[in-house]
Simulated assay, not measured.
Amino acid sequence: VAIARVALDLTQAQLADTVGIVRRQIAAYEAGDSKPRDKVLHNLAAALGTTSEWLATGAGAGPDVRHVRKTITVPLIPIYTSVQAHAVNE
C-alpha cells in the first residue's frame, strides 16, 4: 500500500478519505499490523491504480512507480571550523 500511495504522491489521510476508512487503518496496513477485508482491498486497489492481487500478494500488475525515488534518512551532523566552534562557545 505504501509503495502505491507514495507513487501517487498521496498522504495516508488522502488515501483513507478516498477509500472511506480512517487514516490509522492505512497506517496499520502499511506497517503490516492489519490486512484489509476484501471490499476495502478492492477499494484500495481502485484508488491506487493497481489490482487487489498485487496489494495482497505482490503478484500481478502493480502501480506505476517510476517516479518514486529511494531515499536514505541520515542524521545531519554540523561540521564547524575551529573558528566557528570558538565563536559558538563564546
Rank of each mutant, 00 (worst) to 15 (best):
V1D: 04
A2R: 13
I3P: 01
I3F: 10
A4S: 13
V6K: 12
V6R: 14
V6W: 13
A7D: 11
D9I: 05
D9V: 09
L10S: 02
L10K: 00
L10W: 03
T11Y: 01
T11H: 00
Q12I: 00
L15Y: 09
L15F: 07
L15P: 01
A16C: 15
D17Q: 14
G20Y: 14
G20N: 08
I21W: 15
R23Y: 15
I26V: 15
A28R: 13
E30R: 06
E30P: 07
E30T: 08
E30Y: 08
P36G: 02
P36M: 08
V40F: 05
N43I: 04
A45S: 09
A45Q: 11
A45D: 11
A47I: 06
L48C: 06
L48K: 02
T50H: 11
T50E: 08
T51H: 13
S52I: 01
S52R: 03
E53R: 15
E53W: 14
W54A: 01
T57N: 04
A59P: 02
G60A: 09
A61Y: 09
D64P: 05
D64I: 00
V65M: 09
R66H: 10
H67R: 12
H67Y: 11
K70D: 06
K70Q: 08
T73M: 15
T73Y: 15
P75W: 03
P75I: 03
P78D: 02
P78I: 02
I79E: 01
T81R: 13
T81E: 11
S82Y: 11
Q84R: 04
A85N: 07
H86D: 07
H86N: 05
H86S: 03
H86T: 07
H86E: 10
A87E: 15
V88H: 00
N89H: 06
